[in-house]
Amino acid sequence: MIEAPNKRSAQIDVFVGQPGGMLKALHALQSQSEANFLSPADIKLVASKFGVPVAKVWGTVTFYSLFATTPRGRHIIRVCENAPCHVVGASDILAALEQHLKIRAGGTTTDGLFTLEATSCLGVCGVAPAIMIDSTVYGNLTKEQLPALLAEYRQEAQA
């Protein structure tokens, strides 16, 4: 584990000076985090690499909804709350997920498997209502389909 920071450090070197480089570095670090978030060490690393104050990186990180500064579940479930999903029943989907996972939007299940996030439009309204689990989209959902869907992730986690 002692080597890890150096490895991560080398990994984000390529992004320094690139257009959009800081966001790329943050994405890269977050995607490697088991708990799907950017730790204080990550933020400090990016600040020192890019030569900006840590508070400024913090300001950037907390601005964007894809970044988290507290640990999240292994899988992020994003539920679109905007009008195109709303008019075809997204609030039922969110409510069903909250009930099924026993958490509110923004929360993480006690087993650390899922974090539920209410988000803005995911751009898959052609198949609304839709949710995204990590980078996979599930569209034309009904709340009846949810238990089976989540069970797949649970099984995978056990295996």
Partner: peptide, 10 residues
């Protein structure tokens, strides 16, 4: 051309 990715901000 360089490709950049956003991070969730309309």
């Amino acid at each position: 051309i360089e490709v950049c990715a956003g991070a969730g901000a309309y």
